[in-house]
Design a protein around this nucleic acid. Structure first.
Lengths: 236, 236
DNA sequence: TCGGAAGCGAGAGCACTGCTCTTGCTTTGC
DNA sequence: GCAAAGCAAGAGCAGTGCTCTCGCTTCCGA
């Protein structure tokens, strides 16, 4: 009984996938706001009301696409990380950052869906959280490897931020120094600031050689986290 | 003849302003995608077709709101900068960053309009450029003051980025070192990464004391630009 | 095996959207 | 003083998300 629960369930899976595929096509072509349930149904040769058997609302379809986008981005980042497995922490950091950038440039509308303005009147459901965390976990993992290996330059931290830093460290990576975790969170946000500005055209008549610019900026981020070859003294 | 071109022209100005005000209200309440021309007209007691005499399309209304939002943000940032006039470059930098953050938190939907995903099928018209540049120019100005005054720590720059850095410097601030201009552009994007992540809820169950976190991150950005009290040696 | 239940696609319909066009009225400028 | 331009109103078009009802098909348990 490999055919899970008969032909009907199998058909449901196929139709659901077909709907998502067509929706993704329209998303890539026109953007989230122009994604139309009726158009998807039309393209699939079905009537719009039938589509509601698979997704109870337009927002639910969008949520499914969001999760898929997070997964696609996370997969690309993880693949890039795996490919750089032999290299040092700084190189692996940069490789992950560049994978994020390249995915975003290849899928601008999907990137906008997950890291642009949230779709209005819509807050990301809890279901998206695991998929959304993958890139962050990857970056934490790189820092952890460095910490356990060559060592990590420990960033500075003002006193007023220490309680918050310890809270974040307890949540995210209890084995890492709070200073490092704080710097990681900031670098994570800053990475997507760089990517977003490029994808959304803010660099348009400003930065020409964007790949080189990004590579350098990503390296600076790694340095801010402490992911440099410790020349002047390792972790305190 | 102070009344520019009679009562009709004056009425036009007033009605245009009333439309923008009501549209801004709806934008703040519901977000850009739910901004409806018909609802604006309804609220103003006019019929929807009449509104097209003032804005030829919904996108044109949005463009007007975008420019206003850039101006409002730029004004807030400039005001904060003026208030910190006596302080050193690092403090003024942080003050501007915090003003940007506070404006964004107070006007999330307007922030999303200008720094979130661009409205689909819509590329920002040239008219928005001057208004959009104000924050960036402010940051460049702070760096320039520091450069002419106490001096500026000069960031490092890889060789592959030098041509691009010189191009950007020629465009943006020919009087500043290319390394500084490059760091400025990166910091600019990273600043909006931090702000965007907070406004769009990416920090939600992650960072609690966001004000302190942001203050620290902004200070780190200033340091990356070279805007620190030169302790170890001023500009080379 | 068969009968009720659940799943499914189709169609009609509601309330809404952006936008266009025509119809009259008013203000403006020559 | 009169033609031209600006204006509000209404009707209408094509499109949207979503609901409801209708028959048909598949499923599952007695």
């Amino acid at each position: 009984m490999t055919t899970a629960h008969g032909a009907r369930a199998r058909a449901r899976i196929e139709v659901t996938a077909a709907i998502k595929d067509e929706a993704r096509r329209q998303l890539a072509a026109e953007g989230a706001a122009r994604l139309s349930l009726r158009a998807v149904a039309r393209e699939l040769g079905m009537v719009s009301s039938a589509l509601y058997r698979y997704f109870p609302s337009r927002d639910d379809l969008l949520t499914a696409l969001i999760i898929d986008a997070y997964d696609s981005l996370g997969g690309s980042a993880e693949a890039a990380h795996a490919e750089a497995a032999g290299a040092g922490p700084a190189q692996r950091w940069t490789a992950v950052c560049e994978a994020v950038r390249e995915w975003a440039l290849a899928h601008p509308h999907e990137y906008a869906l997950i890291y642009g303005s949230p779709v209005p009147g819509y807050t990301a459901p809890q279901a998206t959280v695991p998929a959304a965390s993958r890139v962050g976990l990857l970056l934490i993992g790189i820092a952890r490897d460095a910490y356990r290996g060559l060592g990590l330059a420990r960033p500075t931290l003002p006193g007023e931020l220490r309680p918050e830093a310890e809270r974040m460290a307890a949540d995210l990576a209890p084995d890492l120094p709070p200073e490092t975790v704080t710097a990681l969170v900031a670098a994570w946000a800053q990475l997507f600031g760089l990517v977003g500005f490029e994808v959304f055209g803010q660099f348009n008549r400003l930065v020409e050689d964007r790949a080189a610019f990004f590579r350098h900026a990503a390296g600076q981020l790694a340095q801010g986290v402490g992911l440099v070859y410790p020349q002047r003294g390792p972790a305190a």
